[in-house]
């Protein structure tokens, strides 16, 4: 069953078409990747799905219900978690508070209860604290930095904290925007393992944008390719890899052997 459906989404800024009639579907419990050259509209697609951009046409369905007219906070509450391409952590807060912020959608305390910090407010705070400790910090191995201000952390750890924050939302669909960009090989391997574990242990569906072909080919069940705002291919990785349109989009030529070698090379590296 498909947990997320994007149906004919078009998005334009002024005269620039960021997305043209893009459709894709994400099956529950899978890892799906959206790939494409720079400027192909991948992040725009993410923003349209999480509700930050309002597409001019098309619909987005989560678990079969139409969320096209729903605002970003509500979509988050319905189960869309995400991370950002250029890390959007709250720099004035500790790792702990950043991750707790992810649990915002699952908690209810209002301002008055918060100020008196009695009863439910207190219980709720302690509950999400212990959940985060047990489920997220242990899992992502970041319990040693829980009180560090995020601004002081190295890049790789910041990416991991951002993943932790998204997981604290307990999302149904986890959207990752370039989860391993800028990482070294070891960090990439760690991240790939975490993503696979998210799928297998948490049962969370993953949709990601990624440039690293090796990782995409290794861990994804389904791959969609965007080019100039249009979907040019979609299917299992092995199939997409052979698709002449994809090869042309990436190389600007139909030199298949070169691409195949390159893809294989990347795969070896990752």
């Amino acid at each position: 069953m498909n947990i997320l459906n994007v149906d004919g989404v078009s998005l334009a800024f002024g005269g620039v078409h960021a997305l043209r009639d893009v459709s894709l579907s994400v099956a529950e419990g899978t890892i799906t990747a959206v790939i494409g050259p720079n400027g192909a509209g991948k992040t725009s697609l993410f923003n349209a799905i999480s509700g930050f951009y309002r597409p001019q046409a098309g619909r987005v369905y989560l678990e079969g219900s139409d969320i096209s007219r729903t605002g970003p906070p509500r979509r988050a509450a319905l189960g869309l978690g995400r991370t950002f391409q250029n890390i959007a952590l709250f720099r004035g807060m500790t790792v702990m508070d950043n991750v707790k912020l992810g649990a915002h959608v699952r908690t209810r305390t209002g301002p008055l209860a918060a100020m008196f910090y009695l009863g439910r407010a207190r219980r709720e705070e302690v509950r999400i604290r212990s959940e985060i400790e047990r489920e997220v910090f242990d899992f992502l191995e970041i319990d040693h930095i829980r009180r560090s201000p995020v601004a002081a952390l190295p890049y790789g750890l910041q990416k991991r904290v951002e993943l932790a924050r998204a997981l604290a939302m307990r999302p149904k669909v986890l959207m990752l925007d370039e989860p391993v960009a800028g990482m070294n090989r070891e960090e990439k391997e760690d991240m790939a393992r975490f993503i696979l574990d998210v799928k297998e242990q948490w049962g969370v569906t993953v949709l990601m944008v990624e440039h690293d072909m090796g990782m995409v080919m290794d861990i994804c069940d389904q791959v969609y390719v965007l080019n100039f705002g249009q979907r040019i291919a979609g299917g299992p990785p092995a199939e997409v890899q052979q698709n002449p349109d994809v090869i042309e989009a990436y190389l600007g030529a139909d030199d298949m052997t070169t691409l195949r070698e390159r893809l294989r090379g990347d795969r070896g590296a990752a």
Partner: peptide, 23 residues
């Protein structure tokens, strides 16, 4: 100490990504 205060700080630090996180 609670979600309300954290949401305030989130609004201050990055008000757009805060909304995508459900605030």
């Amino acid at each position: 100490r609670t979600r309300v205060g954290r949401a305030f700080i989130a609004v201050r630090d990055r008000d757009i990504s805060a909304s995508v996180l459900g605030i």
